[in-house]
Nucleic acid binder design. Sequence first.
DNA 1: AATGGCTACAACCGCAGGCTG
DNA 2: TCAGCCTGCGGTTGTAGCCAT
Length: 322
Amino acid sequence: MGRAPCCDKASVKKGPWSPEEDAKLKSYIEQNGTGGNWIALPQKIGLKRCGKSCRLRWLNYLRPNIKHGGFSEEEDKIILSLYISIGSRWSIIAAQLPGRTDNDIKNYWNTRLKKKLFGKQSRKDQRQQQQQLMRQVTANDGMKQEAATGDANGSSSMAVATYNWHHQAMAVPVQLQPVPGTMMGGHRIGDEVDESIRKLLYKLGGAGPFTTLPVPQCVPPPMYEGSPSLMPPLCPEDATALLNEGDVQDSSVLPALELDQSFHFNQVKLDGLESFFGMSIDQSMRWREVSPLVCPNNTVASSSQGMQQYCLVDDPANLGIK
DNA sequence: AATGGCTACAACCGCAGGCTG
DNA sequence: TCAGCCTGCGGTTGTAGCCAT
């Protein structure tokens, strides 16, 4: 027996919302609330929409105080820090950015930030950077001259000034807001505790995202004539079995582990990280060794039991995670 | 001016988990 | 205890608009 569909797909409208539909939904929710039942809501207000669709439209677009586009560098840094720490938990990341929705952040990550991270900038970004650089250069006569002449290596100051986003991201420590509903210093943060977020944070790692997780003691595959092997790491059976378990299989649960393996076996990712951290990363380096570069507060540690802690860029206390 | 490719974003889809009867 | 319902989440898709050629 299959799952009952959330709505009759034949009779519901799909696609972009019209201003009239928006107005109907908005005014109804503002006056009456959702009534705790999204499925019944469209029928109540005469909308030929699926309840899920209404919910999404309200949460991502119609809700008051929603910001769209125009992500600041500070927001970039927060998103990046949290992505490195907890992976694609967009709802948690969104909770740190007032006015932003998980969908917005997810889209922003997929279209912009990921490309920055892996060294590919959109043409729009390139143009903006170019324009910004030109403004800087023209504002500074000396720099302007240098840009025109170039140095002995044939590179100009324009090249030297190439946007180094990852350095900027690392340079400024990110102060994050405590997540509502988490414990801090033995007491709750505020009375408006969001239990669901707290539960979610606990689920991330049992006692919290900063909990310890077993790390398979994998051996890198042999190198062939000095070239990195495409073979997967050689892991003990128990570690492999662990990796096949649902909890650990989810790459977003174990970002540090995933990155660790990626360092060895995915040249594309390696290149991206190398470019991101603005340094040369040796192929033989493991994430454990490199992660302090990502986690300047030494939030990564290995114990003698082969357990590894989550990589959190910021002090967990700043995240309201304990 | 036409067009093909790319980008950004809104919306959809399916799954997992919590709740309830 | 369990089946069904509902919500929330994350991944994916569709498409409008922009840009380069």
